[in-house]
Design a protein around this nucleic acid. Structure first.
Lengths: 338, 338
DNA sequence: CGCCCATCCTACAACGTTGTAGACTCGCAG
DNA sequence: CTGCGAGTCTACAACGTTGTAGGATGGGCG
């Protein structure tokens, strides 16, 4: 059906290897030969068979990206950034959704289907540090996010502790003292939730304010619905608070909604800050203060590092850790005289 | 490095073809041979080389999905649905972002890089009906969305006219008579914007209300920011309205935000309905009435139809059109005594 | 004039898989 | 006892590409 090197070679009256050489910009080809080959190529509408090429070369030019779910805005925006970063480097991206499910995540690490890719960017959610040894795989793997530390692979992450601390400090700088937290994960230490909670606690400590466990609402997922439910629980518990730190924007938006239903004014009664800098927060009512976690920097670093591992340039270099720069973004939800 | 059929064959003391047969569940294999091969496979950690397999079979098991941008929530949720639908059918999805740019879209249709896939799901935004002939490609292609009709390929779409008509009728049923529209595309006829505008006009006609062009705000993209800007223009123009139809949820949310800043109460002063049923609209303040466009149905149909084309079962069947069922979802933004 | 080297091109093998054709064994019907 | 078909397995070729080795031509230099 589709034209092959053979067809082009026949049409141009040269050997297939010469055609291959033309395609791969081999130096020593006479101008007129090259010309003839080019013409044959465009006449036949030839384009190389990538399966054959990758069988021969061992490279596919495709990287895998495994995220929990694209319908979670954070991962959609992350995927967007990563696809763009990959494109700049001539790579295509194949996306897997794990649903945040540990079994599914482990399966992906051992799935032969991934052989269609040169390497994997992996953002686990269900796995924990005890699963770190599963990351010992025989293909290039770069970890995204905060579920696992000290693993055997390169790791690109955001400054969770530092930025959560800054977010909390921001609320404190507005004179707030009772800061509720939405999105904790019970018993977690090194996941995003655990780290951000630690940052929160550090900021309190810095300000000499005792940590009140009653101010922390725990949840399983970081969906809008969970933010709403958590806020309802907080309100029902009767605990008092004058600010809220949402562990991500989605949670914060769900919670804000409930706060407003309950008649609390934002930021007057409750100042709110989220985390992720989703586009959504720029048009909510009120607009949402947040942490810009440096998504583009994360994406770019991750793809670069993965490509280095694929090309073998970094050979057996020990696992490296990268942390993106963050930024506090003040919007209406915390706009108060400082 | 990685084990091949040859290695397994050697270890099990059989021919490579027998190993291949075991892997492909060939019937006539003695139980003990099969056993031995299986053991060798797991011992060597063998998994088939997909490049070789697809070179041989001509199939990759991967489909392409080209959308404007994943950071637009609608496309993120669509991609989510499509990846899930593809997974159910044993397919992987490689995502391309076109940025809604016509040149980029045309490039994708002719790009050899797509040879890594068996077919393409394509959601154009920059192309128009005059570009329909570019869709005449020699690989399986299924069109998503509303930019092009009567093209040479299968086409999966939503009932734009009907559902926009229903959305408008919904607002009319609440006694509203001056319904603003946000998201029109100047001069467009067959894009989503054109079709939805037509549905809007039909609903007005049904109700015997004259169409007032001043109520239509035009915009280029369907981002939050555009919804906000359009609403500001409407307000500044001084035109009166008691309801608003946002051509998608994102626009509607951006516009709602501006409405509220301007002191208009929703739904009391202005009833609002959007389009897409994004998760976001369930937690906005107020929650957003919308059209559920049947995203899962679209995704499932699109993947099924593409797979049929790939397998050749539908051979030279003429292009088919599929329209998903929609549903009006009433939430707070239009909750008024009917 | 003869040699070497750079340039240009070709034949062949190999990547790992699967389809095709056929070899061999065995049990059973004729 | 022969022949046949079902069951089990193997050898070989092919998918389309690129690396390797090497052949042919011509120019420059000793």
């Amino acid at each position: 059906m589709a034209a092959t090197l053979k067809d082009v070679a026949l049409a141009a009256g040269v050997s297939i290897k010469t055609v291959s050489n033309v395609i791969n910009d081999y130096q020593h080809i006479r101008a007129d030969t090259k010309q003839r080959v080019m013409e044959a190529i465009s006449e036949l509408g030839y384009s190389p068979n990538l399966s054959a090429r990758s069988l021969r070369s061992g490279k596919t030019g495709v990287i895998g990206l495994a995220v929990p779910e694209l319908s979670l805005s954070y991962f959609a925006e992350l995927a967007d950034s990563i696809i763009k970063a990959a494109e700049r480097r001539g790579l295509k991206v194949l996306i897997e959704q794990t649903g945040g499910d540990r079994a599914h995540e482990l399966e992906i690490l051992s799935s032969p289907r991934l052989q269609m890719t040169d390497g994997l960017l992996f953002s686990p959610l269900g796995m924990s540090n005890e699963d770190a040894h599963h990351l010992n795989v025989n293909f290039p793997l770069v970890l995204l996010g905060e579920r696992i530390f000290g693993g055997p692979t390169d790791h690109v992450t955001m400054s969770n502790v530092e930025s959560a601390r800054a977010a909390t400090a921001h609320l404190l700088s507005k004179g707030r003292r009772r800061i509720a937290v939405v999105g904790g994960h019970e018993g977690e230490v090194i996941g995003s939730a655990g780290l951000r909670l630690r940052g929160y606690q550090q900021a309190l400590e810095d300000a000499g304010i005792p940590f009140d466990p009653k101010l922390v609402a725990y949840t399983t997922f970081w969906h809008r619905a969970n933010g709403a439910t958590s806020m309802r629980e907080l309100l029902e518990s009767g605990v008092e608070f004058d600010a809220m730190f949402g562990m991500n924007d989605t949670l914060a938006l769900g919670a804000m909604r409930v706060l407003q239903e309950a008649g609390r004014r934002i930021p007057d009664d409750v100042a709110v800050i989220g985390f992720d800098d989703l586009d959504e927060g720029r048009y909510s009512l009120p607009t949402l203060s947040t942490i810009d976690p440096g998504r583009d920097e994360i994406a770019d670093t991750a793809v670069r590092v993965l490509q280095e591992r694929i090309s073998g340039r970094e050979g057996g270099a020990p696992p490296r850790e990268f942390e993106a720069r963050f930024q506090v973004i003040e919007r209406e939800s915390s706009a108060l005289p400082g």
